[in-house]
Design a binder for these strands. Structure first.
Lengths: 169, 169
DNA sequence: TATTGTTATACTCTATAACTATA
DNA sequence: TATAGTTATAGAGTATAACAATA
């Protein structure tokens, strides 16, 4: 039901896709530079720290940290290791489940987050928010929120359950 | 120079930003898997091939290829080298400017594009287009188009592979 | 047995700087 | 001198598979 018939997108749909890719790519690239310059953080590292910062106690289990940030376990272990070595997080066995590891934000972690945040916000405002009027920002938030919710509800899986477009050729 | 005063974003603005990052990240990751499985292509390689496919004669100069795809010259040389080795493009000195290199799509390059396209389109439709109604897709295309145009007009001063942004601060 | 996380390893990609050659 | 592109190289990140420990 997905891509059996001749798949195509009209110009508007294609335009939305291409614009999304180009905008997010450039925005992310610029933010990455800012994070690297100011805090020596990669974007993934920032996302992990920010996720911890959102948690009431600054703690989260590895698995819960992975969410939309990283796509493999070992990748998360690697990044968490770097953050721990930098002193931004600690890792300890989870109290309730000895298999799990609880990652906790340190004071130094909160510091680097605070140091990095203003410039981060500045980039996002300059590149994404300022060029738009209020109504467009609201529209963008709503529409992309819809897409995000659908993605979360239907995890795209590793393209495994997806049909092998054995089309022409 | 841009935002020195206390920078902040309200929840809607932050929501637009986070949704953009999450959606584009997941979309790109899924597309990358499809491209890899079906055609053995990375996303960047696909973008380069697709750019060539858009050109009337299937040719373009290296510099023109770089546009929103790659952020360093050497990175482009690397990817173009891979594509050449795979037989998807040829490289030859530009006729008009002996310093330049003209990259040209081969028949094999067109083949792999054609082989990869249906599934690519399918992913984009499943993940981005189908969850939205027509008006939302149009809105998304328009708003992101606005942002993209601003980004192109005001290159974020470091992601400019062509000009040498000298005179920092 | 299934799940959580780590390790080892190999690979891809990126970026800086030095270099060649054309303009 | 400035521009177009390549090369060398080094580093960051990712993914897969084998592994240990716990549930």
């Amino acid at each position: 039901m997905t891509t059996d018939a001749a798949p195509s997108l009209d110009p508007v749909e294609l335009g939305a896709y291409f614009a999304l890719i180009e905008v997010s790519s450039l925005l992310r690239h610029t933010v990455e530079q800012q994070l690297q310059e100011v805090g020596g953080l990669s974007y993934v590292q920032f996302q992990l720290l920010a996720t911890l910062g959102d948690a009431p106690d600054g703690s989260r289990r590895m698995t819960d940290l992975a969410d939309g940030v990283v796509y493999s376990r070992s990748g998360l272990t690697y990044q968490a290791g770097l953050l721990e070595k930098a002193g931004y997080v600690t890792r300890a066995p989870s109290p309730d489940d000895e298999r799990g590891v609880t990652v906790t934000l340190t004071d130094a972690g909160r510091d680097v987050l605070a140091r990095v945040f203003p410039g981060h916000i500045g980039v996002v405002r300059d590149l994404l928010v300022d060029p738009l009027d209020r109504a467009d920002v609201e529209s963008l938030a709503r529409v992309l929120g819809t897409v995000r919710d659908h993605l979360r509800a239907n995890p795209p899986r590793s393209a495994a359950p997806r049909r092998k477009a054995r089309g022409r050729a």
